[in-house]
């Protein structure tokens, strides 16, 4: 029920921000759309913890995104340098990094954060949280091994174990 409420609020916010019309007719269309989407979502059985991870701490998530954005810019410049240098100094490597101690949403975020930074790409992720990562250079692979990504995500979802007891 809590998840349905959050989904409904999200959908209403999405409708209002995309529509921008506040006439009764348009608002009625919006209500019909939101109810339809809620009904379909329930039929598809996707209204759950996975769709709305409420255990994440918003201010920590914001900090995480800022940190990720910074990392992303640095990685972009690095890949741009590699592509532009005439000798193409790549040394593709496959490494394994662990995302243990995170919830399911946390592990997916972990894998996606790695994929989102150019130069590293998650090719596989096991249920135990071990990610197989393809990196463009060995330097990236070494940086990844000492990355604080897992600790930062653990900080974002601090206390989730108390709720779920996984």
């Amino acid at each position: 029920m809590r998840h349905t409420l959050y989904l409904a609020l999200t959908l209403v916010a999405l409708w209002l921000s995309l529509s921008g019309f506040f006439t009764p007719l348009m608002l009625a269309f919006g209500v019909v759309s939101v109810v339809t989407v809620l009904f379909i979502s329930h039929q598809m059985d996707v209204v759950d913890e996975e769709g709305h991870p409420l255990h994440l701490r918003p201010h920590r998530l914001l900090l995480f995104w800022v940190w990720l954005l910074k990392k992303m810019v640095i990685a972009n410049l690095e890949v741009a340098r590699i592509v532009l240098s005439p000798s193409l100094p790549i040394s593709p490597t496959i490494t394994r990094v662990s995302a243990s101690g995170l919830s399911e949403v946390g592990r997916v975020t972990f894998a996606n954060a790695i994929t989102l930074t150019p130069g590293s790409l998650t090719v596989a992720l096991t249920a135990e949280g071990e990610a197989t990562v393809h990196t463009l250079t060995q330097t990236t692979a070494r940086d990844l091994a000492t990355s604080t990504l897992q600790q930062r995500l653990a900080a974002v979802e601090q206390g989730w174990q108390a709720e779920e007891g996984d």
Partner: peptide, 15 residues
């Protein structure tokens, strides 16, 4: 190869 190219593709998609 396709994996290395995916890194370049993510430059377009991110920064």
């Amino acid at each position: 190869d396709v994996y290395a190219r995916m890194h370049a593709a993510s430059v377009v998609d991110t920064l």
